[in-house]
Design a protein around this nucleic acid. Sequence first.
RNA 1: GGUCCGUUCGUCUAUCGGUUAGGACACAAGAUUUUCAUUCUUGAAAGACGAGUUCGACUCUCGUACGGACUACCA
Length: 510
Amino acid sequence: MNREVRVRFAPSPTGPLHIGGVRTALYNYLFARRHGGKMILRIEDTDSQRFVPGAEEYIIESLKWCGIEIDEGVGVGGPHAPYRQSERREIYLKYAKQLIDAGWAYYAFDTPEELDKLRSEAEATGKTFAYNFKVREQLPTSLSLSKEEVEARIARGDQWVVRFKMPENEVVKMDDLIRGHVEVNTSTLDDKVLYKSADALPTYHLANIVDDHLMEVSHVIRGEEWLPSLPLHYLLYRAFGWTDTQPEFAHLPLLLKPTGSGKLSKRDGDKMGFPVFPLFWTSPTGETSRGYREDGYLAEAFINMLSLLGWNPGTEQEIFSMEELINTFSLDRVSKAGARFQPDKAKWFNAQYMHTLSDEQLAPYMQPILKAHGIEVADEVAGKAAGIMKERMTLTTDMWDLTSFFFVAPTEYEEKLVKKQWKGDNPAMLKALRGVLEGIEDFSKENTEVVVRAWLEREGYGLGQVMNTLRLALVGAGKGPGMFDVTEFIGKAECLARIDNLINNVTPLE
RNA sequence: GGUCCGUUCGUCUAUCGGUUAGGACACAAGAUUUUCAUUCUUGAAAGACGAGUUCGACUCUCGUACGGACUACCA
């Protein structure tokens, strides 16, 4: 079958998009681009109870930050609009009825309370209640009730649902692009609710199949948690008579907790100090969650890290741009086992990306940080400062600590360094060095270095002795780049002022 | 409990019957160094277990164990 590749990312707006969801979106996107297909964004808001305001906007902004482009869907439009399921509600009832007419589904009038009661009764006797072929004809359904009774109940406004009439003892044979061949006997399955009258909305299963069909989706790439409902979905395609255009399925391995067992959750992030969401999120109730963007990660590094969680190219390449990912991604290299999320590796990826940024690319990350500290400089200056220190950066949030001395003179001096350097003949040496620096015309780091090195050799000072004392004066701490980077950056006047400050305000030891 | 999926260094993974089982993160040691880093070198570190198929199994089959997902009028 050689049809146009059309995939969809179909999140439910019940909260911020989890990184597992981002990865699912990413793999869909890579697959679509790899095959010259379309990426659809569909919002599955068929659960009116769990709807969270702002979640949809969050999802769209997250995908945008990640560089995952949507060709068709919510926020973009397209030939199958609307793409928000709550705006397609009238479509689904028609299809539910079609299934009933064909004998593939039926009305059920049990209330949720009655079902809860049946479940707890079964549990009390050590059994599990399943709504299936064994009980559906004993319960109040259109299978047990007369046609008149069913019509009367509906007319009177009784609440009802439409359930799928799961066949008895039939083996459903399925193929998954990642898992291979899977078979399930329908007798182990239950009669899933497809549509509920209470809110006039379908459940996931119906909406999903109907929309995937209508939107001509060719490949369904989703999380492993959906694998157990794949038989139902296969059967729905058959019931509708859509098997010839049924999409291919690929169930992705889950993202697991860094330690312990189970799938990754927001709590893990809070506990271990890493974000599980791409962007910072404030819930309607005011609860907040940190995000990769705000924590100082670059989108490219974040995506690169996520791409390798459950997929690998089969080569030893680890750093991939989005374009390279698109060119190398394939579903048959997606692994089957769940991938444990590793915060340390996320940091390593980010550091790798930080190291490759040019001064121009660094400036936009640097500027807001400088402004927050009341510093206004040109982009070139901000970028240069960051560029000098980028090898030491892991996250963009490291920038201030790493570069503050370029912009602010030390107000206090690190005790350890004072003890080590501000003693003996060092104060006298620094005074002499001040004189040398004052006499330098060309204050470029190259020239300053030549002059200072010649001087210290002539005078018999050690390089470490001179540099570390100068570092104490200019930086105030045992950090920073080579000293001539600092002298050039802050300029002669500032250099001399900082030296004077140390000499005049800090009493040498001994 | 039931159904389904899975199982190679601590972690992410390569290997598609024959390899000294490779790489990366983290870790350790060393080198470089003007502080802190970076970088480089080296090291330690794995096929859950048991049967079978085969000349030969990490790779195929079965069983066991363990892990996970699902089991809602949620997705």
